[in-house]
Design a protein around this nucleic acid. Structure first.
Lengths: 182, 182, 182, 182
DNA sequence: CGTTAAGCGAGACGGTACGTCTTGTCTTCGT
DNA sequence: ACGAAGACAAGACGTACCGTCTCGCTTAACG
């Protein structure tokens, strides 16, 4: 295992930057380890020393940019909070390179268990966890899924449009559910 | 381009069968056009003549098997109907090779727009369409998403378990929503 | 074996014509059985019914055109006769599509024994035979080779130019040989 | 393009060796880039990195073996020298795998200009050059052709046998020519 | 005059080889 | 020891061509 303290931060950033640039310029299909290395002016070995494969690099590039736009500070009331989060996802995902990348990462995760685990651990769970405590009832995960699943489902299948109105609707009915049924 | 009436049905079935066999034996990563051709005793050209790539072949293999277990005849009452469908999806997807294949196909669809279109057109929409008419209110798609999105979301992200109880809960709250909010 | 009396002469000529056209348009590499069939408006089966492979077709196309320019009627004297023949070869081969085709056929014959046999039988021997009787001495084949080999050698290796002067020189020294040594 | 100093000599030799082995075992038709790579335990990419195609590989394999039997040191007298060289060609070519390979390479060169150039440059010219200076008269190339063309002509057309006697005869008459006519 | 057996056009098929691409490992230098 | 560079084994990709085949259609010879 490499010694993290001796890692070259320039190379680290160059790799993430090159990955993102390639993605913007040519889409996911333009991202290959060779291409990243060439554009970053870095040896392939340096990439494989620190990441297991290009999916992991792309995940880190995604997280760096996605985390740069932090989730909304929670306003008053559960309904408002969830609505703010749902709209935040819409803004982050829809019509953005970041949303496309997330789609592609979730896609790649279907054949890359390690990526699936990392996505859960570094993206989905951290965004859900702060909200779980706010949800009353004995199955907060169910409510969170009612809110967030439709968003991601449409993102991945594209069978219907996603916008703020949709986000608002989803939150409204999901909350109605949890009170009506819980 | 090619004349479908002259298509060799033996070769057609052999290709789909070989694809499925490879999938069962070695998972999605074992499926390659070369491997399919070799196992089916078929020239690669014959595959490329009728399908654009292996994703399309795998989709057809998926649909052939998935359609072989038709959705439940609709029992009395909307609630029962949706519950039957949700449980049907659970049975079809969870812990089965078919579910794994669907996951992988949705994954591949994130970088293959044609596959995405075909999946929507030949899988998602046909399963939704008969149910849309049954849903009261002015946004039946929203209700269908409340029911089916959590299922697929958990299938794709694996952040929580899927079983009949989950399916039942989802249907219960989704219906509670639509009545409470609509 | 097919019944030659029922052969369609239009198809026969169309195939030879298409072969030649392809050759002129794109060189030997543009000649494939598929391409011939397509351009001739003929089924591949029709080609394979009458020829074993494309080399045989091309040979026939070559012979049809090469035989259309018959060798010179033999003038007075062996020296003149050989010189006329040598110059005839030069005219036929050098800088012409026909010469290029012969090169390519001899090339193909190196891995196609049947083509080699046919070339010998239908091209080389018929051109040599009438001359053999004219050559005095006990090894006329040697003299013929002294005359014709350099021509074909340069055609195939391209290590030096071929023109009438070269043809004349070859004939002059070859004849000098045969008298000096014989 | 690639950095020759970093070339792996084991792989280089394995490729040439595998090419030769395939040739000996199954003839030219058994030689394919795939087969070479498989037998040499080498990636196809490694072959294509250093050679443009299999013809170039085969040429190098030919040259390696052909140069291993160097041309005869030149004995006293032009006649003896040429005779030794002619017999050397006969020994090298006739009834040997090497001769068959040369035939096939010359054949392939008819549709591969780069191979043609390389054959001239690395085989024909180096063997001719040392002899040119020995030939008196103003057209040494003509004399060399008189000696070597018949040999190669018969090799390529197979219209007559090749043996030491033929070589001797060719040299005898070719020299008679040059003195008689020059 | 009708039947029947070809030739024929079209093109699908099994197969093989091609040349390109990407992945992840390994080696060689330089710093 | 890390990093830049890139060669390497492996093997999938999609294309091209080969030679065989199956399908209907037409057409000539024969009953």
């Amino acid at each position: 295992m490499p010694d993290a303290s001796r890692r070259n931060p320039q190379a680290h950033q160059a790799i993430l930057g090159a990955t993102w640039d390639l993605l913007v310029a040519g889409g996911w299909s333009a991202v290959s380890v060779d291409a990243i290395a060439a554009r970053a002016g870095v040896g392939k070995r340096t990439i494989y020393r620190w990441w297991p494969n290009k999916n992991a690099v792309a995940l880190e590039a995604f997280l760096a940019r996605a985390r740069a736009t932090p989730p909304p500070g929670d306003p008053e009331g559960l309904s408002e909070t969830l609505r703010a989060h749902a709209r935040h996802f819409v803004d982050l995902y829809v019509g953005t390179r970041l949303g496309a990348l997330l789609r592609e990462l979730i896609g790649a995760a279907q054949t890359d268990p390690e990526l699936a685990r990392a996505l859960r651990e570094h993206w989905f769970l951290p965004r859900r966890e702060p909200l779980r405590a706010l949800i009353p009832g004995d199955d907060p995960d169910l409510v969170l899924d009612l809110v967030f699943a439709p968003l991601h489902y449409r993102l991945l299948t594209g069978h219907a449009a996603i916008d703020h109105a949709f986000a608002d609707n989803v939150v409204k009915v999901a909350l109605a559910c949890s009170t009506a049924s819980g």
